[in-house]
Design a protein around this nucleic acid. Structure first.
Lengths: 189, 189, 189, 189
DNA sequence: GATGAATGAGGTTTCATTCAT
DNA sequence: TATGAATGAAACCTCATTCAT
């Protein structure tokens, strides 16, 4: 049998793609990505049929990482506030700890290369606990007068605000994450 | 004497740029933008030295439009809540009424083509009333424990949440704008 | 006004394309064609939207050249045999005098890049006299028992035989052209 | 001991090559050919050292098929006309029955990938009876005033005319093959 | 100032061939 | 021998920018 496709190489390409997108936007060239992953230009295309497919897979990968992180050690039995804080903190920390991945994720998110199909594939697997938690929040506070989904959007939005501020005041990271949640929670209370 | 540069043409190019960015991202070609503005390819470069300059000017223009709209009929003498609601409503309506401009604005915002210098130039003109209002909000509620600037980020972020939701439920636009503000205001109260 | 598109450049590209196709087949690269025409790689695409379009236009051009040559000084009033010999001789001489053009024409003819639409466009202009002559031939000799179009195919085919033979015995060119027609004419008599 | 090379696989590759060339010209990729033959990409190169070698072998194979068909049941003792008609009919039927092989054969024939050496190798094996027959024809009718080889070219050329016409009028296949020969024979009589 | 032809670097993707398995 | 992943040169084409008109 011939050489097997190497998961490490696939991963290296995805990581390089995230790095390049963070550095130069969606215009990042496949040539640079390949070089960044230390593979030949052509090799990229044995792992991903096209640049678009690579970008869609990357988006999935990045979103998946966050969900995996949240689900690990999820406090299923705790109060809503504790669970909400867990979701908030874990996803926020991921964004702050991996700024390149986050930047790539945002760029992909607002662009048209990520298809609806890709967006729909996200989390149908283990979005479970997060969705359940957000669903409970949506039934409370101001959110109960607003369409379902708004609470989730609002949490994401408030996290963006925290991230932006952390970028300007990195020292206050811990406080921002905590107080940021308190701010968000005011809406849910 | 040579012909003078026409402000109409400049405007047409900026509008076409916004349209093209909304349609195909920052990869939008100068050729298409020029065609969209009904001018020759080369003409674009007599109004803007480079694609990057065009995009920076566009960003400024788009942000400026929002500020101009907020400042028109600004209720200087009203209570903070009334003023805040004005800011919220006017900027949000702009985004909802002009989806292409907003999409372009977001894409430019998350990209690196818009320089720090450009971002700093924003509103140094007439941001006045908005800044004053947001400053007052920043000193209240949860925001007073958070760095200055967080309140502004939070409002922008919450507006994004509203816009996303309006995109999915256009019928509820009016309610969303109003209740969205109520949600935001809970944090400031 | 800007520079006008130069017919000379267009012609140079077409000629270079014929040369390159003769030399290396339809795989001839646009880069080499451009270089052969002494224009930049990109320039080729301001004259022809794609390689395929260039090749289709070239096919048209080559076929057109032959028809133009035949129609010049066409002996409209002469006997059928004289007119047929005129068609035979002129088109054959074109092929023999311009071996590269002919080679390109043949390669294009048997390939799929030349579309049906292109083939249909040929000669609808001035194919006139040729068609009329071939039509008369088709009604005579062995051809009258065969479908219309067969006579034309047969003439072309017999010319190919002559060209092949001239390639091997260039000295006998004149005799081959003449006796070749006599051979063909035997079928029409 | 190592496995022996399988003649079936070799044959499958040649057939797939013919099919692919018919479908997409000489640009047909070795990868597609391999897939069409149901072997791995690399396997193709254990049977043929290069794409060019494969194409040369294919040309030989295709020409060989025709000769084999003609030689089977060749009426050695019959009159010249009967023998000539046999050559005509058998080779023509092969072309008509196997359009892909013929198309590939033509494309290869007009291209430069098939070397002179390959062309010379053809039929040195069993071209015997055909050559003898064509030799006799070359000494008769109009052909006796033309170089040797012209008769053969002429027969091939007239067959092309028949094939072209059959492609347009498939119903008349039988008549075209027969009357086509009559047309050709007029030149030899 | 306005135009759009001209440019050539750079983009994505394909491909013949090699070679580890 | 068979496989198909790996390679990087080269293919076609796009594009920001320049400049003759």
């Amino acid at each position: 049998m011939a050489r097997a496709k190497s998961p490490e190489k696939r991963q290296a390409i995805l990581q390089a793609a995230a790095r390049e997108i963070a550095a130069s936007g969606l215009g990042a060239s496949t040539a640079k990505i390949a070089k960044g992953a230390d593979v030949a230009e052509g090799t990229l295309f044995t792992y991903f049929a096209s640049k678009d497919e690579l970008f869609n897979e990357l988006y999935l990968e990045l979103k998946g990482e966050v969900y995996r992180r949240i689900n690990a050690e999820f406090p299923y039995k705790a109060t809503l506030q504790v669970r909400a804080r867990h979701v908030w903190t874990e996803s926020l920390n991921w964004s702050i700890e991996r700024p390149e991945e986050r930047k790539a994720s945002v760029q992909l998110g607002v662009s048209d290369v990520v298809t609806v199909a890709t967006r729909e594939r996200i989390g149908s697997q283990q979005r479970g606990a997060v969705e359940e938690t957000l669903g409970e929040i949506a039934a409370r506070g101001v959110f109960k007068d607003l369409p379902p989904g708004f609470a989730a959007s609002a949490m994401g939005a408030m996290q963006d605000a925290v991230i932006d501020t952390v970028a300007r005041k990195p020292r206050q990271k811990a406080v921002l994450v905590e107080k940021g949640f308190d701010a968000f929670w005011r809406m849910a209370k």
